[in-house]
Design a protein around this nucleic acid. Sequence first.
DNA 1: AGTATGCGCTTCGAATTCGAAGCACTTTCC
DNA 2: GGAAAGTGCTTCGAATTCGAAGCGCATACT
Lengths: 169, 169
Amino acid sequence: MEPTPRHIAAYFALMEAGALLQQLVEKQLRDEGNLSYIQFRVLAQLAEAPDQSVRMTDLADGVVYSRSGLTYQADRLEQNGLIVRTPSPDDERSVTVTITEAGREALAHVLPGHIDLVARELFGPLSEEDVTAMADVLTRVRDNLRNAPRRRAPRRRPAAGGDDGRPSR
Amino acid sequence: MEPTPRHIAAYFALMEAGALLQQLVEKQLRDEGNLSYIQFRVLAQLAEAPDQSVRMTDLADGVVYSRSGLTYQADRLEQNGLIVRTPSPDDERSVTVTITEAGREALAHVLPGHIDLVARELFGPLSEEDVTAMADVLTRVRDNLRNAPRRRAPRRRPAAGGDDGRPSR
DNA sequence: AGTATGCGCTTCGAATTCGAAGCACTTTCC
DNA sequence: GGAAAGTGCTTCGAATTCGAAGCGCATACT
């Protein structure tokens, strides 16, 4: 399939719109609540979780983020008293993250401004139909992207008969 | 305007789709051409410029990036011989960036895989109508976002009769 | 049971990011 | 014409980012 100019326009518009919006959002959260966008997403995810708790891995998957990056941000959030980390009861390896009262307050504090900002900057120029179309198309795109990255080739057959070129560790 | 669940879905879908796609693209460019996404955008912008040259500031605006960040990436690109920086002829302050032959080759080298990736991962699940709708809506959003951040209040009337409180530099 | 493999999280190091500050040149305004 | 304000870029420092490596627990296979 040959890409048309419209395809290219759609591609760049998506990337740029996402980047621009993230910059605005990041600034609002920083100014009003001293939170990064990732931290905001983490808190939001915890707040709507059944028992205010989620495992680290599920958090990372939820916010599209590297595991080490999440560890770093979780350190920040815990230092600031917005979350608590405890070993998971059922699986000794995993860590359960729970939002604290202070965390809920921090979230509640930035939320109104956040909603205002998004309503103004993102949805401002859009009609209801536009919003519907955008949600529809982008949801499909996102779900597709969430599955596609399965390029983590399982590396089957760990060189049963010879060196596969991978350096020893 | 009260945000509906559909608004929220659209907002997160935009942010996540952008982030996921960027990760895939970043990886492809890194693997196949040792380029970051920003570097790719810079080269692409230079390649389509009238005389293969653009000023630093215009580049930064074009790719949605901080000036200092662009300086850093321009250093990398220049070290690798993909661009050249020369003082601008008309304005002694500004720097004109020009893509080199090696730069064009690097771009040509990653482009086919790039187009494949985007066609597959982004446009794969979309119909022609979807692409049109997405381009239409997101272009408007992006253009709106490009202008909106004008919270740099123009600070009109530079205190014709007294100190406006702004610290001297 | 016992070893091999896999999973969940953190630590580590190196690269990248941004804003603030600095520098040099340009334009504006008396 | 000269100070004041603005513009374009780089430098600087501090924070953030990610992948690779490390560690301990869990699961599979025999």
